[in-house]
C-alpha cells in the first residue's frame, strides 16, 4: 500500500496526487508514467509523472471514470493499492533547438518535467497552455520558470489569447523558427496539433494515452499504429511522432470500453452515495 501525501483539486475536476515513494524518483525521467490502482478492486491506470523527489511522486489527473473518481476521493493519509514505475520511454533529449511545448487539460502538468529537461539541455522553450476557460489553467508559475516565452489560450478569451491552439500555432510557426513541437493532453489536442504542424513539416512529438493494463509490454492493449507499424504505447511510447500516428485507430481504441466505463461509474456512485 502507498500513502497519499497530498490530493488536491487544483482546478475544477483536475487533481494533483502526491504519493509516498522512495523508489521511483531514482530512475524517473521526463515523459515517463506510473501505474496506479486505487484499491484492491481497482483498475490499473497509467498516469504521467509530473514531478518527483526523494520521498514522493506527483501526478495530475482528471476525474472522468471510476478509477479517477476513486483517486479524487482520496485524503491525506489514505493508501492506494498499487504504485509502480517509472514506465515508458523517456522523452527524447535534444539540444539547442527551438521547441514549442503545448499542454491542455491534465497534460499541462505533464509538460512540466519535459520543459524542465528541455531547458536543462539548453533549448529555447516556448510554452503554450490552453483550456476552455481561464479558470481551468494551472501551474503557470512552475511552467514559466523553465520557459523563454509563455502563452495562455482560452476558447472564451477569459485569459490570454482567445481562440484555439491551432490558430495561434499557425501564426507562431509562420513568424518564429520552430524545430520541434511537443504536446501533452487529451487525444483530441495531440491530434489537432499534429494536423496543424503537418503542412509546416515541423517535427511533432505527442504524449499518447492509450488504454493499458499491465503497462509493461505484456498485454498489448495499448497498441498504436505508428508509421504503418503496430507499436505498444507502454514500452515503445507513450511519446510518438504525431505525423506518423494512425489517429482514427487510436481514437476508436480509446472508446472500446466506453459503455462499460459509464456503467462502472454509475455502479460506483450507487455503491458510494446510495
Amino acid at each position: 500500500m502507498y500513502r497519499i501525501l497530498k490530493r488536491e483539486q487544483i482546478v475544477p475536476n483536475i487533481h494533483l496526487l502526491v504519493v509516498e515513494s522512495e523508489l521511483i524518483h531514482k530512475n524517473a525521467q521526463a515523459g515517463e508514467f506510473v501505474v496506479v490502482r486505487a484499491d484492491e478492486r481497482g483498475e490499473r491506470i497509467p498516469l504521467n509523472l509530473v514531478d518527483w523527489d526523494s520521498r514522493s511522486v506527483s501526478m495530475i489527473f482528471m476525474a472522468l471514470g471510476t478509477s479517477t473518481y476513486k483517486l479524487a476521493a482520496l485524503k491525506v493519509g489514505d493508501e492506494i493499492a498499487t504504485l509502480a514505475g517509472p514506465l515508458g520511454k523517456p522523452t527524447e533529449k535534444v539540444q539547442g533547438k527551438n521547441i514549442v511545448c503545448i499542454g491542455g487539460c491534465y497534460g499541462i502538468g505533464a509538460l512540466y518535467p519535459a520543459i524542465r529537461m528541455f531547458k536543462e539541455n539548453k533549448n529555447h522553450i516556448t510554452t503554450i497552455i490552453e483550456a476552455r476557460s481561464g479558470l481551468l489553467l494551472y501551474w503557470q508559475e512552475e511552467l514559466r520558470k523553465y520557459s523563454d516565452d509563455f502563452y495562455e489560450i482560452t476558447r472564451d478569451g477569459s485569459r490570454g489569447f482567445k481562440g484555439h491552439v491551432n490558430d495561434f500555432l499557425i501564426n507562431y510557426i509562420k513568424k518564429n523558427k520552430t524545430d520541434m513541437v511537443y504536446v501533452q493532453g487529451c487525444t483530441y489536442l495531440t491530434y489537432l496539433v499534429s494536423q496543424t504542424t503537418r503542412p509546416f513539416n515541423v517535427k511533432t512529438i505527442v504524449g499518447l494515452n492509450p488504454i493499458m493494463v499491465d503497462a509493461t509490454g505484456m498485454c498489448g492493449v495499448c497498441r498504436v499504429i505508428v508509421g504503418g507499424e503496430t507499436k505498444f504505447g507502454c514500452v515503445d511510447g507513450p511519446e510518438f511522432d504525431g505525423h506518423q500516428v494512425d489517429w482514427d485507430t487510436l481514437l476508436a481504441r480509446r472508446r472500446v470500453y466506453l459503455d462499460k466505463e459509464r456503467y462502472s461509474l454509475s455502479f460506483y456512485e450507487c455503491e458510494r452515495y446510495g
Binding site: 478492486r41 481497482g42 483498475e43 490499473r44 471510476t66 478509477s67 493494463v213 499491465d214 505484456m218 498485454c219 498489448g220 492493449v221 470500453y257 462499460k260 466505463e261 456503467y263 462502472s264 455502479f267 460506483y268
Partner: peptide, 22 residues
C-alpha cells in the same frame, strides 16, 4: 491472449462491475 486472460484472471474482470476492470 495475454490481455484477455490478464483482464479476466489478474484483474478479475469476470466479476465486473464489482471489480473495476471491464
Amino acid at each position: 491472449a495475454n490481455e484477455y486472460l490478464t483482464r479476466s484472471n489478474l484483474m478479475k474482470a469476470y466479476l465486473f462491475p464489482e471489480y473495476d476492470t471491464p
